[in-house]
Design a protein around this nucleic acid. Structure first.
Lengths: 188, 188
DNA sequence: CCCGAATGAGACATCCACGTCTCATTCGGG
DNA sequence: CCCGAATGAGACGTGGATGTCTCATTCGGG
């Protein structure tokens, strides 16, 4: 009988990913429950979104863990991270834009994740595999942005779902990796 | 006396870029006019957004022209395009997400621009400067996505405004350009 | 089997943004 | 200078979404 909170959150995420302006009514229906019950579990839309944020952060953190981004070469770590993050791509796209739409004062949870991702790129720079003229902060933003863009592109059938992680990884790493001709270009 | 329509659109774009959920009231105030007057020029929010879409398309098209993307090597053309598009970055970010939030049936204007951009990437592939395993469609999406991400990053002071075009261009081109080690990677 | 807790459906009031309308004011061309 | 057109301020009605509440129903543990 009792509602599966996680199930509701997952359905809400799936719907809001497609239609960020969905009403509480639609969300409830999508989750297969009544609107009243939805309110019994999440006091309002804000609370729901905040819960989604927590879930997204948690899921992405699990992706960071599963990818063991602290191990091996940085490029491989980025590749693994993108692969692991693929199932959460839609959620990330939603939260990434949500963070822009409403001016959220910097979120604690995000900072923790940002730090880990930035450290990954910093590590790549320090060991000489990533170029130095693209800041870790930018590479981090670009990672989020490309994952989100990829999720949307898949949704609109502009990119095949199975290709998405590779497309993102190749583009991001191709741009991030340090090469001879990159050095030349910087000095230009 | 008579209101400068273009001025209103520009102010609206600037505001909506920062706060996509701004009310008609806020938009009017931002443009320095009354809400009634805003309605006299744009029959409603939809009309306003559609006008913004047209303006954005027009501006981006001008950027495509100014960058002369059909001339010279493809990489240089992409670089010029990003430079020219920088002033419109916020607008693009707004329209790009707007297109996702509400499921707009494919817009005619966008298709024309998409085609031009895709042809640029196709040209780069055909002359051997861009890698073949990243589709022009994906590179086009990535271009939009990275420009939008860049505009947001600048807004949040995570990236310096003057660095934005270079960051975007270096990342995108680094990922798109064909290289010896790329070939190796593809066959992997 | 039974009772309590949880749920679904819907009524209800409220709020906010929207679009329309009125009216006084202001601007600017003739 | 004067009159008409455009504007600004605000009142007003409307619709949609939200949040609360009630009540009948259903589920499930004891």
């Amino acid at each position: 009988m009792s509602v599966d909170r996680d199930h509701v959150l997952r359905e809400a995420a799936a719907l809001l990913t497609r239609k960020a302006t969905a009403s509480m009514d639609e969300i409830a229906k999508a989750a297969g429950i009544g609107r009243a019950t939805l309110h019994r579990h999440f006091s309002g839309r804000d609370a729901l979104v905040r819960a989604l944020e927590e879930l997204g952060i948690q899921q992405f953190e699990q992706a960071l863990d599963a990818a063991r981004i602290e191990e091996g070469d940085a490029a491989g770590a980025v590749r693994r991270l993108i692969d692991e993050a693929e199932p959460v791509a839609g959620m990330l796209a939603f939260l990434f834009t949500e963070n822009q739409l409403y001016e959220n004062g910097t979120n604690e949870g995000w900072n923790r994740l940002d730090t880990r991702v930035q450290q990954l790129f910093s590590r790549g720079q320090e060991d000489g595999s990533f170029r130095l003229d693209l800041t870790p902060a930018w590479l981090t933003e670009a990672l989020y942005g490309l994952i989100g863009t990829g999720a949307w592109a898949v949704q609109d059938r502009r990119v095949a779902a199975k290709d998405m992680p590779r497309m993102v990884a190749e583009l991001l790493l191709g741009g991030a990796e340090r090469r001879a001709d990159t050095e030349r270009r910087i000095k230009r």
